[in-house]
């Protein structure tokens, strides 16, 4: 089975992004990195044998970048499994095999990473912890799908799942949309515990608490406007 990691990056910095790419590349057949209109040195990362770099000429958001990566992985690389992986160094490449196993074994279409199933997340700020919990309650209430961590970016999708779902929310609220799609498309899903590391650097480059609140606005907008 061909496993492709899709890594969106927006102004994460070349060193941090290359480190995340190298980490993931050791456990997949190919990496598709989407430079989402970065204005820093992230945009200078070159393609290599197993890393294909796509560039959004305008910043469109993580949801849009993930869909771009999925389109390329499905139609140009013939991916059987797509792994969503962050560029900010918070995730661990050696957990990719554990995440893809339920799909490879034919037991699930979607595998969702969770920070709340295994060991407690290291150095996760209290405010973040509270927001993630509230976000989970909010999303569970709206989508009706029961998961423990709704805004974890570490996911694995089978070819069938990735082909049948289309992410239309460009920015961070795409995580809720993915759960909606899992439910409406009746995809089989499981959760797996993943390790997310929080350091000063990754917190600075990662999603801010303010952006987390803006996500709620995007979810509501999508529900109202469509």
């Amino acid at each position: 089975m061909k496993i492709v990691a899709v890594i969106p990056a927006y102004n994460k910095g070349k060193a941090l992004t290359e480190s995340a790419i190298a980490d993931a590349a050791g456990f997949v057949d190919a990496v598709v990195m989407i430079d989402d209109g970065s204005t820093d040195d992230t945009s200078s990362i070159p393609s290599t044998d197993r890393v294909i770099v796509l560039r959004h000429i305008l910043n469109r958001g993580q949801g849009a970048a993930l869909q771009t990566g999925a389109d390329f992985a499905l139609h140009h690389l013939g991916a059987d499994v797509i792994v969503h992986f962050d560029a900010d160094g918070q995730m661990r490449g050696d957990e990719i095999l554990m995440m893809t196993k339920p799909i490879v074994d034919g037991d699930a279409d979607v595998v969702l990473g969770s920070r709340f199933l295994g060991a407690p997340a290291k150095d996760m700020p209290m405010i973040r912890k509270v927001l993630v919990r509230l976000g989970t309650l909010f999303t569970v209430a709206l989508s009706g799908i029961r998961v423990t961590d709704t805004h974890n970016g570490f996911r694995a999708l089978s070819r069938h799942a990735a082909s049948s779902m289309r992410i239309t929310i460009d920015r961070m609220a795409h995580a809720s949309e993915i759960l909606d799609l899992v439910k409406t498309k009746r995809l089989r899903y499981v959760e797996r515990p993943v390790t997310i590391s929080y350091s000063a650097e990754t917190l600075q480059k990662g999603q801010s608490t303010i952006k987390a609140l803006m996500t709620i606005k995007d979810i509501l907008k999508k529900k109202v406007v469509g």
């Binding site: 290599t48 044998d49 770099v53 560039r55 469109r60 849009a64 239309t168 460009d170």
Partner: peptide, 24 residues
């Protein structure tokens, strides 16, 4: 505005997928 935003994303995506960065 939402429709226009979706159209811009589709355009940006098409350009990105059709023109991957050259292999260095």
């Amino acid at each position: 505005q939402q429709k226009m935003s979706e159209e811009i994303t589709a355009l940006v995506r098409t350009i990105a997928v059709d023109h991957p960065k050259h292999h260095d």
